[in-house]
Write a protein that binds this DNA or RNA. Sequence first.
DNA 1: GCAAAAGTGTTTCAATTACACCCATGT
DNA 2: ACATGGGTGTAATTGAAACACTTTTGC
Lengths: 233, 233
Amino acid sequence: MTLIDGQLEQADNATPASVDLAVSTVVFALRPHPITGEDTIWLPLVRRIREPFLGQWALPGGPLAPEDDLAASAAKSLNRTTGLKPRYLEQLYAFGNVNRSPDRVVSIVYWALVRASEDTRESIGENVEWFVADEIGQLAFDHNDIVNYALTRLRTKITWSPIAHGFLDPEFTLAQLRSVHESVLGRQLDPANFRRQLLSTGFIEPTGTSVQGASHRPPALYRFIPREKRNEP
Amino acid sequence: MTLIDGQLEQADNATPASVDLAVSTVVFALRPHPITGEDTIWLPLVRRIREPFLGQWALPGGPLAPEDDLAASAAKSLNRTTGLKPRYLEQLYAFGNVNRSPDRVVSIVYWALVRASEDTRESIGENVEWFVADEIGQLAFDHNDIVNYALTRLRTKITWSPIAHGFLDPEFTLAQLRSVHESVLGRQLDPANFRRQLLSTGFIEPTGTSVQGASHRPPALYRFIPREKRNEP
DNA sequence: GCAAAAGTGTTTCAATTACACCCATGT
DNA sequence: ACATGGGTGTAATTGAAACACTTTTGC
């Protein structure tokens, strides 16, 4: 509430910040659960190599570089830790409570979807590890809260927004897409109704090709239609 | 993508930031349109008193004080400019593109709802003025984008979330609440269906009192039930 | 009694759900 | 041919929208 020159303070020409700014990312992928074998949500965490919370697991991220946009910073740290590029990336929330860290840090958190690519299992580094999202222990800072918030956002958003393709290759069958929804929501969905609902949204279109080789009718392949190329959403 | 000690960078113990951090707030109130007289959305803007964008209108805000939570900072700047306390306050988005300002500033923006109180018309200061939201000119920085984004959020959120009471006194009639929805959405709503829909959500409860004095059946008064005291949503 | 807004009831229409059934393929 | 998942059809259920109707007040 300080007054400057007898006038109100104003944003966007702030005095030099005494608050640190970081960008972190919650990265989701679908992989089989180690016990049940059913697809479930995984995420990569990074072991902290300094105080505070030294040795504990935390979300990948880092300070915001002056030359990076926020989303670019998130994508970079994602790529650093997983070697992957995000197929979906969205800002989650800015966390900045005074008591969330011993020093004062505001974290702008993104969440991302990536494919369950093969080559990322152990290839990155000692200090990066993937965990089943529902079975992570206590994380550094308020990162448990952040992960839970991101999971909630994923599960609610998938019911009305076309994001499930973020877990898949560019071309996919409706069964694969339905399987993603089922894994995220944790319940079975009616194949017939799922098909109709999704096709009526206009979010996807058939590629014209289909998948041969299985001992049943070959399923058609579809691709996601980006917002700009859609007709009436 | 710098490596520190041969390890991955990590968030939340960032190196001293070379990026400034500000918190701004989009404040909405409902007041009669100066020409049509119908209730419409207004918001307060602050005239900039320094470069860049000197003399142009901008959102109220300021640098984040180390001792303030993000929401507290937003509420403070709101109170500074309008003299009001927010009846609803929510984080909107963190804007941080490199090119949004000559210097590098990340703005964490909140949006708020306040009552159309009498005493705030001109009483604050020379450099604060209220505008009809749909009739503001060109603002400083990317603040036009921010205002439009906040308006979109308000209009979509009011259809499924109980926020309209943020424009009203703690006790209100269903007609007042419906009028808020109509003003925000810009179209008429069926009184019968509106009543049923809203009561079925369990967001509000009757106070037991009603408003006498008008030449028609006296309407019952309702109050908003905060999330914690609700039963099933 | 009449106007005016509060509040209730009912009919219609659209969307979702549940589930029966046919289709195309590999073995 | 038959097992398997892909794909279509349809009746039942639910919920939203439209609108007629009753209630309670001031004048």
